[in-house]
Amino acid sequence: MRLHIWINGKEYTDEVDAGMPLLEYLRSKGCYSVKRGCETSNCGLCTVWMNETPVLSCSVLALRAMDKRITTLEGLQPQAEEFGAFMAKEGADQCGFCNPGFIMNVLAMEKELQDPSEDEIKEYLAGNLCRCTGYAGHLRAVRAYLGRNKN
């Protein structure tokens, strides 16, 4: 079936299978930051933005993205690098496998919530699982990143 879509600002038209998840389509276009971490819509690793809204690309059909604008980490390199520096400074990473989905959701949260409290940050990011760390470093990095322009 025909799919028309924008990925990181670039327009594509392709024939896709009816059941193809958006995740697989994006990977076929070279967006390898988009990864599968679970089979149950629980881990958040596959997070991308669909018209600026964070969604689970493992659970959305590619055809559901018809005429929509998809953003992956590849399309947000400067922002990802800036936040990544805060993660490194706080020693938040271990294996780093969860990073792409986590960064996509942190950047979505930054756009959506005004000056979020710690509880609001935890709630917004609750759907991003990390199996190595205890999230403490992640949280320090997020707080420092969000507060970077305050002084």
């Binding site: 629980n42 958040g44 689970l56 959701n105 609750a126 759907g127």
Partner: peptide, 12 residues
């Protein structure tokens, strides 16, 4: 609703 999995999940 806020306890159901995560923000991205509830967007879907």
């Amino acid at each position: 609703l806020r306890h159901i999995v995560g923000t991205q999940f509830r967007n879907c």
